Amino acid sequence: MLNIADTLHRWCRDARPFALATVVEVRGSAPLPVGTSVAVDEDGNAVGSISGGCVEGAVHELCRQVLHDQGAPQRAWFGYSDDDAFAVGLTCGGELDVLVQRVDPATRPHLTTALADVVEGRPAAVAQIVEGPEELLGGTLYVDAAGGTRHGPLTGALRREIGAQAFALLRAGRTARAEVGGDAGTCPERLSVLVHVHASRPRMLIFGAIDFASALSRAGRFLGHHVTVCDARPVFATAARFPHADEIVVDWPHRYLERTSVDVRTAVCVLTHDARFDIPLLRVALTLPVGYIGAMGSRRTHDERLRLLSEAGATEDQLARLRSPIGLDLGARTPEETAISITAEIIAHTNQGTGLPLSHLSGPIHRDGVPAP
């Protein structure tokens, strides 16, 4: 639902009821991920898309029906039809499970608060029950950046468990489903909860103010990262040379990395090409819970780097986390091509992709991305 937060916030602020259709499960290849929503108000105005166009008409009609009947939430399934690829279904070959529910903002003030946080750029998570007892289906709970739950209809142990699951996904920056309940202490019935997450931009830390770093900062910014360029040499680390970076830091790389905040979505890209900077920096990076660590250099440089890191105390498990030489084998030569090579590896690593051509693989094209350990 957070893909249409601006409009939903306005409707909630105006106390305007609406029907919300949300993709709660995807099987096979589908154009949009779990958590994507369409909403329809009482005047028939629609916002959002869940399939890129091929089932929107059917979803719109179902939303109008649910909104008019004011009944319980409904589930709908849309899939590819071998008999008629142009019937209501996904011609891309995937399958979507969609939950459609009526939302009355007057009874869900916590949803207005959550959407306001999203619109204003603050981290937020909305947990939505998508499978479970009818009286709980469609229920929502808001979790803020500090892990607090606000004004959701759930109470007691169930609220605490859902809140904990939502907060964990918020810290990971990932929209996903979580299973809760199934015991006397929380809820006798097993529940499936879809946690919609709006998180701060993942960080890309680029060390080494060289031409390759300039191209990489531009690519990282394009992909939605908060980009920091760090170098100990003030003559090179300037805003004029790195206009696409969100932050320029003049400091020794390892010293900056020791004091800055990182998480499992952070990408550390070491382009310094100098063991004086590389080794202390990588020694710190390999101990941190970041998602990606890559270092530029030849294979000879890599072998020497491993030797020096081992002498500095790095373990085999830590060294196994290092992506060096950095990037995928795209035959890249220019700074711009190298930036694509590096960001392609970050994407593949984050989403557990193979990096192989899709034409050489079988099975679903899209998969649920999970933060790499």
Rank of each mutant, 00 (worst) to 15 (best):
R177V: 03
A178N: 02
A178D: 14
E179M: 05
E179P: 13
V180Y: 03
G181I: 08
G182S: 12
D183S: 14
D183H: 13
A184I: 03
A184K: 12
A184M: 03
G185I: 04
C187M: 13
C187S: 15
E189F: 03
R190I: 10
S192G: 04
S192I: 07
L194Y: 04
V195Q: 03
V195E: 06
H196W: 04
H196P: 04
H198A: 05
A199M: 06
A199N: 03
S200W: 09
I206V: 12
F207G: 00
F207K: 01
F207L: 12
F207D: 00
G208I: 00
G208S: 04
D211W: 04
D211T: 13
F212D: 11
F212K: 01
A213I: 07
S214H: 11
A215F: 03
A219I: 03
G220Y: 00
F222L: 14
L223R: 11
L223Q: 10
L223G: 08
L223W: 12
G224K: 15
T228E: 05
V229N: 08
C230L: 09
D231G: 06
D231V: 09
A232N: 08
R233T: 07
V235R: 11
A239G: 11
A239P: 14
A240F: 09
F242I: 02
P243T: 00
H244F: 13
A245I: 00
A245W: 00
D246P: 00
E247A: 09
V249R: 15
D251S: 13
D251W: 05
W252N: 10
H254Y: 08
R255I: 10
L257Y: 08
L257G: 03
L257A: 06
E258H: 14
R259G: 15
S261M: 06
V262F: 01
D263C: 09
V264K: 15
